[in-house]
Design a protein around this nucleic acid. Structure first.
Length: 886
RNA sequence: GCCCCUGUGGCGAAAUUGGUAGACGCGUCGCACUCAAAAUGCGAAAUCCUAACGGAUGUGUUGGUUCGAGUCCGACCAGGGGCACCA
């Protein structure tokens, strides 16, 4: 055995072995239980970043652990290869997005291989390949036939100078990123998928996903946003015709408090009024400025203008003024809202600003506790649902007032009565409303999957016949930032109508890249099938048993995938509805940011590897200076790694310097998988130190000659073990039990590694060199190497051989703790007096409650603290502690 | 603005079901080995008071439930993720 741990040689040798054995290529084997472990596929941006390394290390640990559990494990990899960054790179470098993308894929694939991930590369997919995206197109046409896909207009960000649709990301402070021109909202025709048809099912099924984090399920449920309310119309007359201004409200009980209605700028009523009111027309134009981003709309100043039109209150008959409000969105609900400033925060603000009347129609019910002194002051604020709950704890604590016949009714009573009256008059009824909107998939961009439609002047929108699929995206174009290159490429868009043969124009929009990622996990099962989107192999592998990816995908990607899988189910393509059985959302990777403001006022960022941190006698950070010249730089805290902050870490450099195993160990040890991970070079150094120590301990043991395993059947030196020997074996098997639980059930890896480190420390103090003692060292080292195998597979592969085994560690079954070794005959009990720790006592493991209590009360420390005082109560938690209350 | 999450020594964290707060590691300090350095090994350390024994305090702030709260409940503060065309 080599004395020195040579990570480069060890890793090359292990990887060569796995490759030569094709160890991670899997086939469908109905006789064995399958396990599908999937990490979110990367966007091929150039090189792997640390977030990728973390993501794929977690997946690899689970993959290797489940393999040792005897499962037939599939861990595939692919490329989410369409998207905006390729177009940006193309513009910057004057190369087609395709070349850039394929080059990146080649480089990043090499990086993944150097990290030793147990991937089945035979199943690799890249979404920009026609073999893949033809099935996007094929399936889109099926959805069109079924009515799941349809056409309507949608709002986009429009750059008036470049005459281009902008992604939200390309809008900086309300202006186009390249032109600086103020962005406008514009309505254009687009294709949508009816995800809202699945709202109820997508919501209900969240209840049956115990393998998903609670917070992700909550976020999805809120996103789908089911609310029960009332849809009602305010009647009005226009050009002699009777119309209804429809609104939806969850607060029908406040209907008698309506003092105005507000409509979106694009609402027909607004358009009508603007025709005769230039001031209003100008305001409506102003509303069209700005972006379509919700976050920005939510924080902008609420503005409005009266239309001069009135509608009739459906119950009171009062005349209600109609306003145009910039906070009312045409795309939400009805594009109109009723204003109840007495009981809604936003309406209150609006009414205050424009001097509209504020009417209170909800009051504390008789018999409810009066408000506390501090709360009375808030009476000047609107009496919102949140306030009810804050003040009274429940909606039923308040009743209607100033509401005529509805006075005295509670919330549910009032809603029921008002809904019934509206229904009788034909003005409305109860209705379930969803926050979820249909999924617009049209993108006016080049580097994506072409939408397979042909626009014919005679026949309208004609689907591309299946036999003509795929509609191949030309790969040689270079975008210039103004509009979609496809729309400037006649060889692409000039086609004959498949129905009538006339000259027609091919659709030049491409699909949202979320389409690509909504079913790639199913394609891995049958990536080589050129005849069908999926085949029966999917039934073996689906659903994914463990999905791992960033928390930032908690809503959109995961919801779209759940929807898409259901549509495939409804078309008979798959048998499952839920694509991902278990979900692990990994936290982000952060690094220090160092900067300095130059004399010209520009901020310069320095990579943390070029900075030395200064500290005081306790190790607390006091400052930081540049390695190069010793000049001070400012520490700005920690953020996600990014080019702009110059705080990225290159995985390749680290693999060369420390080896893949040390990087993997550090990543898994530093933080639990769901938390953010703070990068530290010292931490990597520490991981490398542990690897060297592990190697050295095995080396020193092996150098003294082999001994058979104590767990082996042909044990020759069985005698009565010493206390130290029993303690060592117990530590080893306790650690095994904990690590098995951490890796399997809890999916936390940092504590598993800590437990193995602790075991190594214990082993270091076990100096028994007898035959029996050496057998226990052998057994412990075997367990350590097996427990670490999923995390640092290369080194463990080598050490397993050094411990005397000819077989490969990856084919080994996970060891079982020996129940005999776990037996303990005495335990330590913690003694408390009035909840404060005052002592400890060791009792036999067999001691019952009264014996423990007696031992506790007899303890000298306990005696000291209770002396003279009567013992009121003694709480005994068997195996743990005794609390004496005096 | 709305939805979700997080907050524990100098630092990353541990405490799994309400039961010993700080395991494990990084950094720091001390010692050993060395001509020296690196590497390695051993040891110390939450804070305050004390020579020591020991005691008090302590898990963002604040109030509560409990024999007992990092863990449960209320309010607040700070940081992060998402908000539908970044992926």
């Amino acid at each position: 055995m080599q004395e020195r741990y040579d990570h480069a040689a060890v890793e090359a040798q292990a990887q060569d072995y796995w490759n030569s054995q094709r160890a991670f290529a899997v086939t469908e084997d109905p006789s064995r239980p399958k396990y599908y472990c999937l990490s979110m596929f990367p966007y091929p941006s150039g090189r792997l970043h640390m977030g990728h390394v973390r993501n794929y290390t977690i997946g690899d640990v689970i993959t290797r652990f489940m393999r040792m559990q005897g499962r037939n494990v599939l861990q595939p990899m692919g490329w989410d290869a369409f998207g905006l960054p390729a177009e940006n790179a193309a513009m910057a470098n004057r190369v087609p997005p395709a070349k850039w993308t394929y080059d990146n894929i080649a480089y990043m694939k090499g990086q993944l291989q150097s990290l030793g991930f147990a991937l089945d590369w035979d199943r690799e997919v890249a979404t920009c390949r026609p073999e893949y995206y033809r099935w996007n197109q094929w399936f889109f046409l099926r959805m069109l036939e079924k009515g799941v896909a349809y056409k309507k207009t949608g709002v986009v960000n429009w750059d008036p100078v470049d005459q281009t649709v902008l992604a939200n990301e390309q809008v900086i402070d309300g202006r186009g990123w390249r032109t600086g021109a103020p962005v406008e909202k514009r309505e254009i025709p687009m294709y949508y998928l009816r995800i809202t048809d699945y709202s109820q099912e997508l919501l209900d099924a969240l209840e049956h996903l115990p393998g998903w984090p609670e917070r992700v399920r909550t976020m999805q449920a809120n996103w789908i946003g089911r609310s029960e309310g009332v849809r009602l119309g305010f009647p009005y007359e226009l050009n002699g015709k009777h119309e209804l201004l429809n609104v939806f409200t969850t607060r029908a009980d406040t209907l008698m408090g309506v003092t105005f209605c507000a409509v979106a700028a694009e609402h027909p009523l607004a358009t009508h009024a603007a025709a005769s009111d230039p001031g209003l027309a100008a305001f409506i134009e102003e509303c069209k400025q700005g972006t379509a981003m919700e976050a920005e709309l939510a924080v902008m100043e609420k503005k409005g203008k009266p239309t001069g039109l009135f509608v009739t209150h459906p119950l009171s008959g009062e005349q209600i003024p109609v306003w145009v409000g910039n906070y009312v969105l045409m795309t939400y609900g009805e594009g109109a809202v009723m204003g109840v400033p007495g009981h809604d925060e936003r309406d209150f603000e609006f009414a205050k600003k424009y001097g509209l009347p504020i009417t209170q129609v909800i009051e504390r019910a008789a018999g409810e506790a009066p408000l506390a002194a501090g709360q009375q002051e808030k009476d000047t604020e609107p009496f919102t649902t949140e306030r009810w709950q804050e003040w009274y704890g429940a909606k039923t604590g308040v009743v209607c007032v100033n509401s005529g016949k509805y006075d005295g009714l509670t919330y549910p009573q009032a809603v029921a009565a008002i809904a019934a009256d509206l229904k009788a008059k034909g003005y409305g009824d109860k209705q379930v409303q969803w926050r979820l909107r249909d999924w617009g998939i049209s993108r006016q961009r080049y580097w994506g999957c072409p939408v397979p439609l042909i626009h014919c002047p005679q026949c309208g929108d004609v689907p591309v016949p299946d036999k003509d699929l795929p509609v191949v995206l030309p790969e040689g174009l270079v975008p210039d930032g103004s509009g979609n290159p496809l729309a400037k490429t006649p060889s692409f868009y000039e086609v004959k109508c498949p129905q009538c043969g006339a000259d027609a124009r091919r659709e030049t929009d491409t699909m949202d890249t979320f389409v690509d990622s909504s079913w790639y996990f199913l394609r891995y099962a049958c990536a080589d099938d050129s005849a069908a989107m999926v085949d029966q192999r999917v039934d073996y592998w689906a659903p994914v048993d463990q999905y791992i990816g960033g928390i930032e995908h908690a809503i959109l990607h995961l919801l779209y995938s759940r929807f898409w899988t259901r549509v495939m189910r409804d078309l008979g393509l798959v048998k499952v509805a839920e694509p991902f059985e278990n979900l692990l959302t990994q936290g982000m990777v952060l690094n220090d940011i160092y900067s300095r403001k130059g004399t010209d006022g520009r901020v310069q960022y320095f990579n943390p590897v070029d900075v030395v941190v200064q500290s005081d006698a306790k190790g607390a950070r006091t400052g930081s200076v540049l390695k190069a010249d010793g000049t001070p730089v400012e520490w700005e805290g920690m953020r996600t790694m990014s080019k702009s902050k110059n705080n990225g870490v290159d995985p390749q450099k680290l693999v060369t310097e420390y080896g893949a195993d040390s990087i993997r160990l550090f990543m898994m040890f530093k933080a639990p998988p769901e938390d953010t991970l703070e990068w530290s070079d010292d931490g990597v150094e520490g991981a490398a130190r542990f690897m060297r120590k592990l190697w050295r301990v095995v080396y020193e043991y092996v150098a003294e000659g082999h001994r058979p395993s104590a767990t082996g059947q042909n044990e020759q030196t069985v005698g009565e073990p010493t206390d130290a020997q029993r303690a060592m074996r117990r530590a080893a098997h306790q650690t095994l039990a904990k690590v098995t639980d951490d890796l399997g059930r809890r999916r936390v890896f940092n504590t598993a590694i800590a437990a193995v480190m602790e075991l190594m420390n214990t082993l270091g103090k076990f100096e028994d060199r007898s035959a029996q003692g050496r057998a226990i060292v052998q057994e412990t080292l075997e367990l350590v190497v097996q427990m670490l195998a999923p995390i640092v597979p290369h080194a463990c592969h080598a050490l397993w051989h050094e411990l005397g085994y000819a077989d490969a560690l990856i084919d080994r079954r996970w060891p079982q703790p020996d129940p005999e070794a776990l037996i303990q005959d005495s335990i330590e009990i913690v003694l408390q007096v009035n909840g404060k720790l005052r002592g400890r006592v060791v009792v036999p493991a067999s001691a019952d409650k009264s014996q423990i209590e007696a031992a506790a009360l007899a303890d000298v420390h306990v005696q000291k603290w209770i002396e003279g005082k009567p013992v009121r109560k003694v709480i005994v938690v068997p195996g743990k502690l005794v609390n004496v209350v005096v």
